[in-house]
């Protein structure tokens, strides 16, 4: 479904030196898979994820989504993004809009749904995350866990074919992590294709089809969840696991 070929991403530092964040990544995400990416910070996990919907433009390499090379400048990236949901660490709900407006803005303004239709869909999805009574409030009055569940719903309102999660629970108070992970598990059970960058090892083990270990800008190790945690191959992964488990 998504194939990345030799993705490289360099950032120029202020002093002119170059920071190689991604050093050539090849990977294919198949339909229905839940790919969980873990690794030390600075290893390129988030940058890799943000390259998938071109929030970061790769320095070189190709990203093929559903047969279309989205790194080609001729591709209408907005059309591609409509089919890829993204959930951010800091939620990024639209502060000037109510929850309902947050959910319906994109489908309505992009003329994918009529307003009534979009509202109905939004309300149904809100019920699934038990937040239907929050439809008319502004994001500032919500807890972090509520914000993140609504951010997930906002992406789902676009009927995406794949969902990207960029450390969705890292900015949450510990007692709210569970409610967000539950929604993500529900989504996984429904068969959604997911790419998740996270530090939640329990989630990786339980939900992942494959777990990737990213460090130093490459995918250092890839395995099924069972083997990933019980039979790590590289010393880096062994070291990492000994620290986080």
């Amino acid at each position: 479904m998504i194939t990345v070929k030799n993705i490289v991403k360099d950032f120029k530092n202020m002093d002119g030196s170059v920071n190689h964040v991604l050093r050539g990544i090849d990977y294919t995400v198949e339909q229905g898979q839940k790919i969980v990416i873990v690794g030390p910070s600075g290893g390129g996990k988030s940058t890799f994820l943000r390259c998938l919907n071109l929030l970061e433009t790769p320095t070189s390499g190709d990203i093929i989504f559903d047969g279309e090379n989205i790194t080609d400048p001729k591709t209408d990236i907005n059309k591609v993004r409509q089919r890829m949901g993204m959930v951010f660490q800091t939620f990024n709900l639209f502060n000037n809009l109510t929850v309902m407006e947050n959910l319906t803005l994109a489908p309505v303004k992009l003329k994918i749904m009529k307003e009534e239709e979009a509202k109905e869909k939004a309300l149904n999805l809100l019920k699934r995350v038990n937040l239907e009574e929050k439809a008319d409030v502004y994001p500032s009055s919500l807890s972090g866990g509520q914000k993140q569940r609504i951010a997930i719903v906002r992406s789902l309102c676009m009927n995406p074919e794949v969902m990207l999660f960029d450390e969705p629970t890292s900015a949450l108070d510990p007692e709210m992590v569970g409610e967000v992970l539950d929604v993500m598990k529900q989504l996984a059970d429904d068969g959604m294709t997911m790419v998740v960058v996270t530090h939640e090892m329990g989630f990786a083990r339980e939900v992942g089809t494959k777990v990737l270990f990213m460090a130093d800008g490459i995918i250092m190790e890839e395995n099924t969840p069972d083997k990933f945690f019980t039979e790590p191959q590289t010393p880096r992964l062994k070291e990492f696991l000994s620290k986080v488990l």
């Binding site: 907005n78 993204m86 990024n92 639209f94 994109a106 676009m158």
Partner: peptide, 15 residues
Amino acid sequence: VDKGQMEAGRSLGLT
């Protein structure tokens, strides 16, 4: 304005 607001909009496919 937090740049996450622009990113969230763009990630939904808004121009």
